[in-house]
């Protein structure tokens, strides 16, 4: 029987959650025996080869490209997991949400203390368009499981993956669910 397939993706985030996936240490060998990786920054596959069993997304949704990626993941993943506070809750990227987008861009590109001789707000058609706010995944598509944490610990991720791959309920001891 073919092994279950996993795909992973990062949106607006620091890659810390992917680091935490790698932080499962030598259990990664067990994981490699249990699953195959499809689209993921870990193997640099950028499109789905086929639909997969589990999709894992880190990061908040902050531009139009992210919306497309997320919808593509929803379409191609039987189960979609949001990992990390940026993906599932309010976190560092969403701190811009109470400041109007125009003011954020002006501060970053026109008025910031490191701007010399004016400056311009980037407006190339190849650059994704920022959304008005940064959204958690579940405000854009249906998400099946949430793993909070900044990042969720390797044990949290491992527990969740093993439970999903062996058809068990996701249950965590107290220390493994934290919002920070």
């Amino acid at each position: 029987m073919a092994k279950p397939l996993i795909a992973t993706q990062h949106l607006t985030s620091c890659f810390g959650c992917h680091m935490s996936i790698l932080d499962i240490d030598d259990r990664i060998l067990k994981l490699a025996k249990m699953v195959d990786f499809d689209r993921s920054p870990i193997n640099d596959i950028k499109e789905f080869t086929w639909p997969v069993d589990i999709g894992i997304i880190e990061g908040g949704v902050s531009n139009d490209e992210h919306v497309e990626i997320l919808k593509d993941f929803r379409k191609n993943c039987k189960v979609l997991i949001g990992i990390g506070s940026c993906a599932v809750a309010n976190s560092v990227p969403s701190m811009r949400n109470t400041v109007p987008l125009k003011e954020c861009l002006e501060e970053a590109y026109l008025n910031g203390p490191t701007i010399v001789d004016g400056g311009i707000i980037p407006n190339d058609e190849d650059i994704p368009i920022l959304l008005d706010k940064v959204y958690p995944l579940h405000e854009v598509v249906k998400i099946d499981y949430f793993l909070p944490g900044c990042p969720p610990s390797a044990d949290t991720i491992w527990n969740a993956l093993v439970a999903l791959l062996t058809g068990k309920e996701l249950e965590f001891p107290y220390e493994l669910i934290k919002y920070d």
């Binding site: 701190m95 900044c150 920070d180």
Partner: peptide, 19 residues
């Protein structure tokens, strides 16, 4: 607007603890 990862009260916060 609760940004737990960067909040000084994280780990000591009773709202978070009730979460």
């Amino acid at each position: 607007n609760h940004y737990c990862p960067s909040c000084e009260a994280s780990g000591e916060c009773e709202l978070q603890a009730l979460g």
